[in-house]
Design a protein around this nucleic acid. Structure first.
Length: 419
RNA sequence: GCGAUCGUAGCCUAGCGGUUAAGGCCCCUGAUUGUGGUUCAGGAUAUCGUGGGUUCGAAUCCCAUCGGUCGCCCCA
């Protein structure tokens, strides 16, 4: 049997009620914070990701869906920051009043082994703020994420935050870290020996007991305890923590927190949940002051985050599709369809029998569809320009004038999430 | 890329070497051609993931493969 490709899922109507609830809430909250939506292509030049995300990262090295058309190398986007930055540069958005605040929502693609909270096609929602290098701009995007999660009622979240420094002090730190770990290099696990060369910061996150013991040993621990970022980075980070505290945001300064994408500078953060599986990060982001310039634009500081929609949705109570307001039971399709349209124009949902069933069958159908009310529009009613209105829960019905029924219809209250 | 585990109708489950693979939900028809839900009667839907092997005989045992799920790695 044909099935959806490995690591992809069909989203069926039942599940989409929750998705739409999330999307409406997210859009509403981001728009109210004056972020505006941007939609970039699902695929981009491969070189964009190689330069933007970093050619030593796992994402670029082994997780990209890359293909060739003509002489073009293209890649399905594995994340969207690079694409948004490309669009920012291409459309001269540095001429827009600063900060430029954008958000996006859509599918991403990574070739990985699927597991809980990880698929090959998954969805992210994210924000990017361009043109400010202030701690308050970092705080504003973190606050926005926190506001979204709070509004959605997600319990047991933790904000982990760290300062990875700017390009200059981070390289210094990496070299110092290599120097201090050099005596232990041969006793590190296989992975860490590789990380020692490629991405030493990652070693600190290792789960191997052997490595953990080394990193916890006095000499190493003392080294890690100290802040090795430069004066400016430290000031930025401390100011950010003060603002977060003022805003009553609980955070954990996790000195081991590093991110897998090369473009981050200074602030990095992650929001995790204890209700997820091994992939417990629901949102991740940080500052990326070098990326716009790296991709050929003007030197522009920026900060942003992305959240995993599937992971997030698994944390919110399932929503149910809106119930059916009316079912029209009739033996005359023309007048039934016309009446349905008139009621729909008043903002109600209506189903009409399209199969020519008899009245009993149509009521059975209405019952299965859980229609609130059935409108019986038979020959008798039509002759008098009337309808019979039957309340399915109470089982009561009355025959009323059709036109006065239509004028009495009031628009139902629309979900407060929609603006 | 590595490891663990599971595959029986659309869904849930029984069967664990021996007739025609059983039950529940869902779906369809009728009792009921202007009144639903309940009930009753009937019906449809499965090459038991696929391929090979062992056996007189395989859904059942063995091997391979594919797919799902979970974990490592990494990330949202």
């Amino acid at each position: 049997m044909l099935s959806a490709p490995k690591g992809t899922h069909d989203l069926l109507p039942e599940a989409l009620a929750t998705w739409q609830y999330f999307e409406n809430t997210a859009r509403s909250i981001m728009e109210r914070a004056n972020f505006h939506e941007i939609r970039t292509p699902l695929f981009e030049a491969t070189s964009l990701f190689e330069r933007g995300v970093g050619d030593t990262t796992d994402i670029v090295n082994k997780e990209m869906y890359t293909f060739e058309k003509g002489d073009r190398q293209l890649t399905l986007r594995p994340e969207n920051t690079a694409g948004v930055v490309r669009a920012y540069i291409q459309h001269g958005m540095d001429r827009c009043p600063k900060p430029v605040k954008l958000y996006y929502l859509g599918p991403m693609f990574r070739y990985e082994r699927p597991q809980a909270g990880r698929q090959r096609q998954f969805h992210q929602a994210g924000v990017e703020l361009f043109g400010l290098d202030t701690p308050q701009s970092d705080a504003s995007v973190i606050l926005l994420a926190w506001d979204l999660f709070t509004t959605l009622g997600i319990p047991d979240l933790a904000l982990e935050i760290n300062n990875v420094g700017c390009f200059d002090c981070r390289d210094d730190f990496k070299n110092q870290l290599r120097a201090i770990l050099l005596p232990f290099k041969d006793s590190l696990c296989e992975d860490c020996q590789k990380r020692y060369e490629t991405n030493p910061l990652r070693m600190l996150d290792c789960k191997s007991e052997k490595c953990k013991a080394i990193y916890a040993s006095e000499a190493v621990a003392n080294f890690l305890e100290a802040d090795h970022t430069c004066e400016a980075c430290q000031q930025h980070f401390n100011a950010l923590l003060i603002i977060l505290t003022q805003c009553n945001i609980q955070f954990h300064h996790n000195k081991m927190l590093v991110r897998g994408l090369d473009y981050y500078t200074r602030t990095v953060f992650e929001i995790t949940s204890t209700h997820l599986g091994a992939q417990n990060a629901v949102c991740g982001g940080g500052r990326y002051n070098g990326l716009v310039k790296t991709l050929g634009g003007p030197d522009t500081p920026a900060v942003g985050w992305a959240l995993g929609v599937e992971r997030l949705i698994s944390l919110i109570p399932p929503q149910h599709p809106a119930s059916l307001d009316f079912y029209i039971a009739s033996d005359d399709p023309g007048s039934a369809l016309l009446l349905a349209q008139q009621i729909q124009h008043q903002g109600f949902s209506v189903e009409v029998d399209l199969s020519g069933k008899n009245l009993g069958k149509q009521l059975t159908q209405a019952n299965k569809l859980q229609a609130g009310q059935v409108i019986i529009l038979g020959e008798t009613e039509r002759q008098q320009n009337q309808i019979t209105l039957k309340d399915m829960a109470k089982g009561l019905q009355e025959t009323v004038d059709k036109d006065s029924f239509l004028t009495s219809l009031k628009r139902p209250p629309v979900s407060s999430v929609l603006r």
